[in-house]
Every structure is written in C-alpha cells, then in structure tokens.
Simulated scan of single mutants.
Amino acid sequence: MTLLERKESDGLTSAPDAPSTASTTIRIAIADAHRLLVEGLVAILGQPGTGIDVVATAPDWDGLLGHPNHPAEVVVLDHDLDDALTGPARVRELVAAGAHVVVLGRRPDPAAIHAVLRAGALGFVPKTDASETLLQSIRSAAAGELWLDPSLQAMLDAYDVSGDPGLGDRERRALLLYASGRTLRDVAEAMGTTEETVKSYIKRARRKYRAIGIDLGTRALLRRHAAREGWIPGD
C-alpha cells in the first residue's frame, strides 16, 4: 500500500479543496527562521517562469499568522520552528485557515513525516533536496494533491507505521527539546508551561516508547535515539 493509499484508508486529515484555476500564479508564504535560506528560496522560487509569487515571509509562527497576506495559497513551513507548537499542530491550523502546506525538514524522519501528513500537509521536502523537488511539491499542493519525491515515498512505504509510539504533540515537542540538550527549565519556557508538566510529558513519552520495545530511560539513550532518527545532528 502506498502512502497516499494509506492516508486515504486511515482517515487522515483532508486538505482543503483545490484552488481556483482562474489564476496561473501560485501565491506562497515561507516561514523559516534561517534568513539566508529564506532569501535563497525567494530568489529561486520568484524567478520568471516558475508561476510562483512569494507574497509573505516570516521568521516565526507569530510573524506568519500576523502577516497581512496570511493565509497564502501555499505555505512552505519549517518543521522545526522554535516555539511551543509542534509541526502537526501548525499544519492543522494552516489547513483550517484554508492554506495548502508543504513542510521543510532538516532530515527525513519517517515518524515526523507521517505525523505532518496525517495533519493535512501535502508534501515534505528535506532541506538537503534540490529546488526542483520543492517546486514540484508546491505545484502539486496548489492543485490539492499530495506529492513526495519517489525516494522519500519509498522510504516511507518501507517504514513500519506500527512502530510509531503514538506521541501527542506536546509529548513529542518536549522530548525533542529535551533530547537537544536543553534543561527542563529551558523546555518549560519554550513550551510556555511548568517544569513539572514537562517532566510528565517526557515520562509519558518514554513509557510509550518502552511499550514498543525502545528504551529511552536515560539521557544518553534518548540522545542516541534522537540522533539516529534525525531529530538532532549526529555526533
């Protein structure tokens, strides 16, 4: 079963209806904290002949939501914006606002990709991929169609979805931040909550991983798993 077939059969969040074909120009927004990356994307995507008009850029979530051109037809969204929300939570909010979403990620983590696709994203593009991959994904998303690079599709099709521990958005976010080396206090501040609540998120996440046979009971085991899954850079 392909990922698209799995998405349909599993009852994943539907994307909004395909946009009107009255205009051939795709209006997009880019949300990413890395200024050089955004400037490069604007230069590439805005070239004559691409059929794309970059109408908004933002370094963070609040900047995107507060932009006068929000929601754009397609939002190119950094998966790892540094705030209290997770990638799937952002995707759901953008879809509810009427945008199509293409997610950019540092590394192709199968569990994270499945999570954003379930939330309604129509594409995922690793930041190591070529610009043509992003262009194809944007054009497909604007038509209301899911598209993934064939090599990424093959990787996801080989991934055992049953091995997903089923973390909630806040549990995943707390675990990722803690795995990156932050203290409990730092994680609590980033998520806008208390240290005790963060401890609870991490404890529940570890218990869910233990239920599928993965021990993340120590900081060392957690960091090793995080590096292997691409959540953080490897040593």
Rank of each mutant, 00 (worst) to 15 (best):
S20M: 06
W61I: 12
R210C: 00
Y159T: 06
A130H: 14
E132T: 13
E73V: 04
Y178D: 01
L4S: 11
S137R: 06
E93F: 08
L12F: 14
D53P: 09
P88V: 05
L4D: 09
L81Y: 07
T133W: 03
W147M: 11
A97Y: 05
V125H: 10
P71V: 02
L41P: 03
A226W: 03
D160Q: 14
L148A: 05
D80R: 15
N69V: 08
D129V: 02
V74C: 11
A72T: 09
A174N: 03
S23E: 14
L176A: 15
L134D: 11
Y178S: 04
H225I: 06
A112M: 10
V76M: 05
R210Y: 00
S131R: 05
I113C: 02
G98H: 07
I214S: 02
D109I: 02
P108T: 08
V187K: 01
G163N: 12
E73P: 01
L36R: 14
G51N: 07
R139G: 15
F124I: 12
Q136C: 14
L146D: 04
T133C: 10
V91M: 04
R223L: 03
S14E: 14
R118Q: 08
T13H: 15
D215G: 01
A18Q: 10
A121S: 15
D129I: 04
V198F: 00
P108L: 07
L146V: 14
G217L: 05
D215L: 01
L221Q: 06
G49T: 11
G120E: 06
R106V: 10
G46D: 08
A141V: 08
M155F: 07
S162K: 13
R206M: 00
G123H: 04
V116A: 05
A89K: 09
G166H: 03
E73R: 13
S137A: 15
L184T: 01
G168Q: 07
P71Y: 01
T57D: 08
L216C: 02
L135C: 05
A15Q: 12
Y178R: 12
A43G: 11
I113S: 01
K203A: 14
K127E: 11
Y178C: 02
S14P: 14
R170W: 08
D17R: 13
L146E: 07
P68G: 07
G163M: 15
M191S: 00
G11I: 10
V101R: 01
L177T: 02
G234R: 14
P48Q: 13
R6D: 12
A96E: 13
F124D: 07
R204S: 15
P126W: 11
R223M: 06
V103T: 06
R6H: 10
A154S: 13
A205W: 06
D32G: 08
A72E: 08
V103A: 04
R90E: 04
E145V: 15
T57W: 06
I28D: 01
G144P: 03
A43M: 13
S151A: 15
A99C: 12
S131Q: 11
W61E: 04
T50I: 08
G51K: 07
A143E: 12
D129E: 13
R35V: 15
E229L: 07
P108W: 03
L81I: 13
L85H: 05
L64F: 04
A226E: 04
T24D: 14
L45E: 03
P233K: 10
